[in-house]
Simulated scan of single mutants.
Amino acid sequence: MSLFRGSAVALVTPFNEDGSVNFEELERLIEFQIENKTDALVICGTTGEASTMTDEEQVETIKFAVEKTKGRVPVIAGAGSNDTRHGINLAKMCEDVGADGLLEVTPYYNKTSQRGLYEHYKVIAEAVNIPIILYDVPGRTSMSIAPQTVKELAEIDNIVGLKDASGNLSYAAEVRNLVGEDFDVYSGNDDVVVPLMSIGGIGVISVLANIYPRQVHDMCQNFFDGNIKEAGRIQVNNKKLIDALFVEPNPIPIKAAMNMMGYNVGGLRLPLYEAADSTKELLKGLLR
């Protein structure tokens, strides 16, 4: 069963000046997303700066999102780790506070073999009862889930999908060829959502949706409704802005853009640093 179909926003985590989580602004962002038809919220993923948060902060933020969302859309918790024991504990805590599903990134830095990767995901899946979306982002983790490994993991009942942030449509096509129709594939890249959906994907986990939630939702919905030309138009028309949102590592540009638009999302936690002046000027021109 799909956790969601369409556009899930990879939501930023707003911070106060002292670096603490700004829960008041987070509630405002959640309402903005739901009002504009976002189909699911991903809390404390890459864009949410989870890697700089303590477990307590991360779980508290996910719990807050669950409480404020009140079941209107699914809340998917970022819960990945390169330490499997830590990953199990974090997954359990996210389940305990009411997350509808988990987004589990591949182990980073220490990496592993494909066998180790399978066992890592298997034991995490066995520790919880909620659905899991695998997260393949080799540009950040320096390893990928091989299509055959995805196929084997898809046989585990509560591993239900893959966020493919490889940017490689050939990889996505091979995965779709190997897994069953009930296993979901989502684009992890805003610039290839429609192409990925054309080979069997059912949506996107989107950075762009932080500022253009209605457009990203409409792009997916038009595709589902058979209005492929309109879906493609939305995809192409946002290409320059999408590129600008990744001229520096995510979420540096998206936070700069949101602050320009009047959202008080604050700064970033080191080692992430404020956007360069050239990035801000580029974003200003596009947003204007």
Rank of each mutant, 00 (worst) to 15 (best):
S2V: 11
L3D: 03
F4A: 07
F4P: 08
A8H: 06
L11T: 04
P14L: 09
P14Y: 05
N22T: 03
N22E: 09
E24C: 08
E27R: 13
R28T: 09
L29M: 05
E31P: 04
E31W: 14
E31H: 15
E35Q: 14
T38E: 10
D39P: 05
A40K: 00
C44E: 05
E49T: 05
A50S: 14
A50E: 00
S51M: 15
M53H: 09
D55P: 04
D55R: 12
Q58L: 15
V59L: 08
V59K: 04
V59M: 07
I62N: 00
K63G: 04
F64S: 02
V66M: 07
E67D: 14
K68Q: 11
K68P: 05
G71D: 07
R72W: 05
V73L: 07
P74C: 09
V75M: 10
A77R: 01
S81H: 07
S81R: 01
D83H: 13
D83V: 12
R85D: 13
H86L: 06
G87L: 03
I88L: 01
I88N: 05
N89S: 15
N89Y: 14
L90P: 01
K92Q: 14
M93G: 05
C94N: 11
D100Q: 14
L102G: 01
E104Y: 12
V105I: 15
Y108Q: 05
S113P: 03
Q114A: 00
R115K: 15
R115I: 09
Y118D: 00
E119T: 10
H120Y: 05
Y121F: 14
V123M: 13
A127V: 09
N129L: 11
I130H: 04
L134H: 02
V137P: 02
V137T: 09
I145H: 09
A146H: 15
T149W: 10
V150Y: 02
E155F: 08
I156V: 11
D157T: 13
N158M: 00
V160R: 08
V160S: 05
L162W: 02
L162Q: 07
A165R: 06
N168V: 06
N168H: 11
S170E: 15
A173K: 14
V175T: 04
L178A: 06
D182M: 11
D182K: 14
D184Q: 13
V185F: 05
V185P: 04
S187G: 03
G188D: 02
D191Y: 12
D191S: 13
D191A: 12
V193I: 11
V194H: 04
M197T: 03
S198T: 12
S198H: 10
S198W: 10
I199E: 04
G201S: 08
G201P: 03
V204S: 06
S206E: 06
V207N: 02
V216A: 00
N222P: 09
F223H: 10
E230L: 11
A231W: 07
G232E: 14
Q235D: 06
Q235W: 10
Q235C: 00
N237H: 14
N238A: 13
L241Y: 03
I242D: 01
A244G: 06
E248K: 01
P249Y: 12
I252M: 00
I254A: 08
I254M: 00
K255E: 01
N259D: 12
M260L: 12
N264W: 11
G267Y: 06
G267T: 01
R269T: 07
L270Y: 13
P271T: 03
L272N: 02
E274C: 04
S278D: 15
S278A: 15
S278V: 13
E281H: 08
K284Q: 15
L287R: 06
L287P: 08
